[in-house]
Amino acid sequence: MSGHHVSSAKFLWGVAIALLFLTYVTVAVTWIHIPEPWNVVVAIAIAVVKSAIVAAFFMHLWWDTKFNLLLLITSIVFFLILIGITLLDTLYRIDPVPSF
């Protein structure tokens, strides 16, 4: 069959090592106590990069039809819509904490 990408073993190992390294980084940054919101930003950013690596290389999106990539992006966009608009409510209530 044509068009099926075969990754070399070396390459796959490289990807895994990059992921493990980023795991180390994400733990390590908690030791230096980055101030609020930025610690969250950094943690999420690293997670996003790791996921992108998994999706691109382990899940072959890099070589795959663009539509599958579009699907992935769509799911993320709609998740962002869900949380984004919900936050418009929950962050801006007069009494943000239900005081029961």
Binding site: T26, I44, A47, S51, V54, F58
Partner: peptide, 13 residues
């Protein structure tokens, strides 16, 4: 891999 990705987010969060 998706199960892996979800964990990649759960861990820091």
């Amino acid at each position: 891999h998706l199960v892996d990705i979800i964990w990649i987010f759960l861990f820091p969060l």
